[in-house]
């Protein structure tokens, strides 16, 4: 996941300075810098402080892998740049393997029972090393000035109608591999072997003549799409919705194969001195009310069952879709990480 790459250096600075600000009742919470972190701090955390009296120092964190590299370095020095961090699946599992996360007692997290199945990540001893925070969609976004009709299938990406103005993420973890597998190879089964993955990547390679921008910076993609320099591409649903509400000529489309859904989890850093407070935080964030609030304010997809929340149909369809989602195959990305990364990079860079 490559969210919010622009603030790397700044967030590092914050991470360092934040460790020195340690009020009696306060925890440091980091999330992807930019809109995410700002909105969480402004709209969501105050409710937690009100309920528990615990202050939240919000920290902007860089792209997941870079953040992990920093956490790894901090862990070696037995430091905790943050108490709680919002991470993508890959970082969640890699960090766990490297022993970066604190183990949480599930009995202190009663609200997590509200979460959908599988969102409390347990280790062999039955302790939680991570708890689901939210989910978000990546969809088939289009510029409505150039593409009047909403695409109905991911297959339309391959059609010769984008005037060579597609924008695609450079990272193999965007979900494009999964969407391609589901659309053209009948499901994720093909991803189980390297041969299968190579076939999928070869299919993606067919996009190359249509792609004018392989992006890693969200800002660059969004600007180009809004300006019409890109006609379509893969983009985060939540930020696309913000653009739409801003009146930009953009549509975020859920193809019939489903939007790509990715999960993010809360983890507590191993060297945090405030495990109890962090448990209270995670417990609060797992409440259906909080999930509903995040859906409204952040545009994320909640991870509690729909009937436990008071979201209207309109509000629900703004953050997601009833169509079965394309699921990011995290185990495969973890298993084939380096190989897959190299293959994908070679495909686009050659």
């Amino acid at each position: 996941m490559i969210r919010h790459i622009r603030i790397t250096a700044l967030s590092l600075l914050f991470a360092v300075s934040a460790t020195t600000v340690q009020a009696a009742e306060s925890i440091n919470v980091s999330a992807w810098g930019g809109f995410f972190e700002e909105t969480l701090a402004a709209e969501i955390y105050p409710g937690f402080t009100e309920e528990t009296g615990i202050e939240v120092n919000s920290i902007a964190q860089p792209t997941s892998s870079a953040w992990m590299t920093q956490l790894m370095a901090a862990a070696r020095a037995k430091k905790a740049p943050t108490d709680i961090s919002l991470v993508a699946d890959e970082v969640l599992y890699r960090g766990n393997a490297a022993g970066l996360w604190a183990k949480l007692d599930t009995s202190k997290l009663p609200n997590t029972k509200e979460l959908k199945e599988g969102y409390v990540k347990l280790d062999d001893d039955g302790k939680a090393f991570g708890v689901g925070a939210l989910a978000f969609y990546t969809t088939f976004v289009t510029n409505t000035d150039y593409s009047k009709e909403a695409p109905t299938s991911w297959a339309e990406l391959w059609e010769d109608k984008w005037d060579k103005k597609l924008g695609i993420v450079t990272n193999p973890n965007s979900g494009l591999i999964e969407a391609t597998a589901k659309t053209f190879f009948g499901g994720y089964e093909v991803m189980q072997t390297r041969e299968g993955l190579e076939k999928v990547i070869a299919k993606i390679a067919e996009l190359k003549p249509q792609v004018s921008l392989w992006y890693r910076d969200e800002g660059q993609f969004q600007q180009a799409l809004e300006a019409g320099e890109l006609n379509a591409g893969l983009y985060y649903h939540d930020v696309a919705m913000l653009s739409i509400w801003d009146g930009k000529p953009i549509a975020s489309n859920f193809p019939k194969e489903g939007g790509i859904v990715s999960d993010a989890s809360w983890v507590v850093t191993r060297d945090s001195k405030k495990i109890e407070s962090t448990e209270k935080f995670i417990n609060y964030m797992s409440k259906p009310e909080t999930q509903a609030l995040m859906a409204r304010k952040l545009g994320i997809f909640p991870i509690v069952p729909r009937d436990s929340m008071d979201l209207t149909d309109e509000e629900f369809s703004a953050v997601g879709s009833e169509i079965e989602a394309v699921k990011t195959q995290t185990e495969i990305h973890l298993r084939e990480g380096d190989w897959l990364e190299s293959k994908f990079q070679e495909m686009i860079a050659q």
């Binding site: 892998s65 590299t69 890699r94 392989w214 890693r216 990480g337 380096d338 990364e341 990079q345």
Partner: peptide, 28 residues
């Protein structure tokens, strides 16, 4: 290279930082 170049123009510096930061594969 990242801003103005196509992927096929990317230089080794881009690859190195992709490996070290993007994939957290510091050894490579």
């Amino acid at each position: 290279p990242i801003m103005l170049g196509r992927p096929r123009d990317w230089t080794m510096t881009v690859m190195i930082s992709d490996k070290a930061l993007g994939d957290a594969n510091l050894p490579l």
